[in-house]
């Protein structure tokens, strides 16, 4: 017996909310992507905890897939950051407002 499942969930939600705040507040594109990473991690934590709770391996398998996909996603998004920097010479997110109505 380690800890109540509740505590794990609280930890995961704390991490998730920290990542969410990073995404909402930071203006640097890199920092926003870091926030996304944090959120993905928190989700992975919940999955591992659930697999421990039910003593099944599926949760862990999903986590490995999650990591694979995350790495793919990060590579593309960082390539896009490079491209955007080339276009606007800045990575301040306030500069990319062409969708303004």
């Amino acid at each position: 017996m380690i800890v109540p499942f509740q505590h794990l969930l609280i930890l995961a939600s704390l991490l998730f909310l920290l990542g969410l705040m990073a995404v909402l507040v930071r203006r640097n594109l890199i920092m926003i992507l870091i926030g996304v990473e944090v959120m993905l991690n928190a989700a992975g934590l919940v999955l591992v905890g659930a697999s421990a709770l039910w003593q099944q391996l599926d949760g862990q398998v999903i986590v490995i897939f999650l990591m694979a996909l995350t790495s793919a996603e990060v590579s593309i998004s960082l390539a896009m950051v490079v491209y955007l920097n080339r276009r606007k010479k800045t990575i301040d997110i306030r500069a990319f407002d062409e969708l303004r109505g």
Partner: peptide, 20 residues
């Protein structure tokens, strides 16, 4: 249901590989 305690366990790489 969330008050349950997490049990101690260990997922060996062999089992993991098998499942994967």
């Amino acid at each position: 249901a969330s008050g349950q305690e997490l049990p101690r366990w260990y997922a060996s790489p062999r089992d993991f590989g098998y499942a994967l």
